[in-house]
Each structure stands twice: as structure tokens, then as C-alpha cells.
């Protein structure tokens, strides 16, 4: 399948979605009883589990080291050995460079929303386990971690939402006219593993989209606060970046709406005072 064919002539992708359509997201919060907060999230076939411990006293080694007045956030991103949908199994769940780098990125995404000044000398642990990987793993991890933090009752500024935007490599390295026709960006959103692999460039964005009706939406340049951005794949001409960014941000906003609905559903079914 050549890079051109990510979207067919009718505007449909391999799995029947349109270019700006997200995969089905299914969520369950409070999966585990022993951690302070936990969440399970499915984005299409990507399945992720997140658990949050804290805020608690740093145990062991962290004790003497944390002299700063703010809390520390400790993240770990781990992929189960059986998580790869296609091909061989992963040899080690964590400890290799890629997962360590992703752990760091996850920490950045979480630090942007948690108000660490409320927790001097405390520690918050966020652990994410990827059970099945089918594209946008890191974004699903960020979304699950946000939900787990909400489940734990830890105050956060906003949802930290991740989304990817992928563009076909054919033409990715050519310049494009800066006036985009549709105005909503280019590229496909929330690609699965196969789409990511077919020689395309992927932009991953983690943003704080803001609640609907908030100031962020009324800004004319429609930005949303972007906290992490990374690109993978083949070359991309700079002129195409803005289109991809807009697509990804819109994807973040759409995802936030879905996550918010899931949180509200969880609240209505688990509130102790109204039983």
C-alpha cells in the first residue's frame, strides 16, 4: 500500500473512518482497589491500564533527595511482553531506551497538569501498562494517566489529552500552499499501527484543550495549550506542519469531550452520598 492510499477517493480509510474521525474510545475508571486511582482505556485496539499511587510520603531512596518545596512526579511507561499486535513479542517490558524515553515524555505531560506546589515533599507515582499496542500508544497512555489522576482525586488543571496526526510520505517533503482549503488541517487523525507504518510521518501532540466554552476556544488562532510534541517517520516539509498541528489539536479537543463524558458517567454511578 503506497503512502498515497491512506485515504481513499471516497474519503475513507482502511477501517472505514474519515480522515478526522477518532477510533472508538471505551473507558473504565476505578479498575483496581489497591491503588489510589486507576483507569483502563481502549482506543480502537490499543488497550492501556494506568494506576496512580499518591500523594504519599516518598519511601526509601527518595527521602533524603527531595529537598525542593514541591512534590515529585514519578512515571513509568511499560509495555506488556504480549502487547505487539503484529509480529514478534517484545523481549522486555521496560528498561529499553524507547520505553524510558516515553516514560520521560509521560512525566512531562503529567507535570503540566498536576499542581505540584500543593504537595511539598510528597510523591505521586503514575504507572502505565500497555496491554495491546495498535498505534497511538503514547497518546492512549497519557489519556489513561489523566483519568487515573482524576480517579485518585488529585487536583489537576485540565485534562492532558494526546492525539496523533499522520500524513502520507508521498508529498510530505514538498512545500504546500499555506492557505489550506478546508481550514481544519491535513492528515489523518488517530492512526492505527498499520497506518503509522506505511511510510508516513506522524506528529504526536499532547495538549490541554480546555473545557468547551472556555477562553481557549474563543482565541482566533484556536491554539490550545500544547505541552508535548514529537514527530516520527520520514521527512516533513515545514509548511505542512501547521496543517498537521491543527488536525491533531482538533483531535485532542474531540477526545477530551469523550473523556469528560466518561468521567461524568463514573461520577453518577459511584457517588456515595446519593445512595
Amino acid at each position: 500500500m503506497s503512502g498515497q492510499d491512506l485515504v481513499s477517493d471516497q474519503g475513507l480509510r482502511v477501517d472505514g473512518r474519515r480522515a478526522n474521525e477518532l477510533r472508538q474510545i471505551r473507558v473504565r475508571m476505578g479498575v483496581f482497589g489497591q491503588s489510589d486511582g486507576s483507569a483502563y482505556l481502549e482506543q480502537g485496539n490499543t488497550k492501556v491500564l494506568a494506576a496512580v499511587y499518591g500523594p504519599h510520603q516518598p519511601r526509601g531512596g527518595g527521602r533524603g533527595g527531595n529537598r525542593s518545596g514541591t512534590g515529585i512526579i514519578n512515571c513509568q511507561y511499560s509495555m506488556a511482553v504480549f502487547s505487539f499486535s503484529a509480529g514478534e513479542r517484545k523481549k522486555r517490558p521496560r528498561g529499553d531506551r524507547k520505553t524510558q524515553e516515553t516514560s520521560l515524555q509521560l512525566r512531562r505531560a503529567i507535570e503540566a497538569i498536576v499542581q505540584v506546589e500543593l504537595y511539598p515533599r510528597s510523591q505521586i507515582d503514575v504507572f502505565v501498562e500497555v496491554l495491546q499496542s495498535d498505534g497511538s500508544d503514547y497518546c492512549a497512555a497519557v489519556n489513561a494517566a489523566t483519568l487515573a489522576l482524576i480517579d485518585a482525586g488529585i487536583p489537576i488543571k485540565d485534562y492532558s489529552v494526546g492525539c496523533t496526526a499522520t500524513i502520507a510520505s508521498m508529498g510530505a517533503s514538498e512545500e504546500v500552499d499555506s492557505k489550506d482549503e478546508t481550514g481544519s488541517g491535513t492528515g489523518i487523525v488517530d492512526a492505527n499501527h498499520m497506518e503509522e507504518c506505511t511510510g508516513a510521518t506522524t506528529l504526536t501532540v499532547v495538549a490541554l484543550p480546555g473545557a468547551p466554552g472556555s477562553n481557549y476556544e474563543s482565541d482566533t488562532d484556536n491554539s490550545g495549550l500544547v505541552v508535548v510534541a514529537q514527530g516520527t517517520g520520514a521527512r516533513l516539509h515545514l509548511s505542512r506542519l501547521e496543517g498537521l498541528r491543527q488536525r491533531a489539536l482538533q483531535g485532542c479537543r474531540d477526545t477530551r469531550v469523550i473523556l469528560d463524558q466518561a468521567v461524568r458517567f463514573h461520577l453518577t454511578t459511584h457517588d456515595p452520598h446519593f445512595i
Binding site: F32, Q34, S35, S38, L49, A50, A51, Y53, R59, N74, Q76, S78, A80, V81, P93, R94, G95, D125, F127, E129
Partner: peptide
């Protein structure tokens, strides 16, 4: 067989 103790179970299982 391969057994992995996930950190989800307890923070003591983090890393190695």
C-alpha cells in the same frame, strides 16, 4: 514462561 510484576500492583515493583 515469563512473569512480569507490573508496577500497577505496588510502587515497589517499579523498574527492576
Amino acid at each position: 514462561f515469563f512473569v512480569d510484576c507490573s508496577a500497577n500492583a505496588t510502587p515497589a515493583f517499579e523498574g527492576k
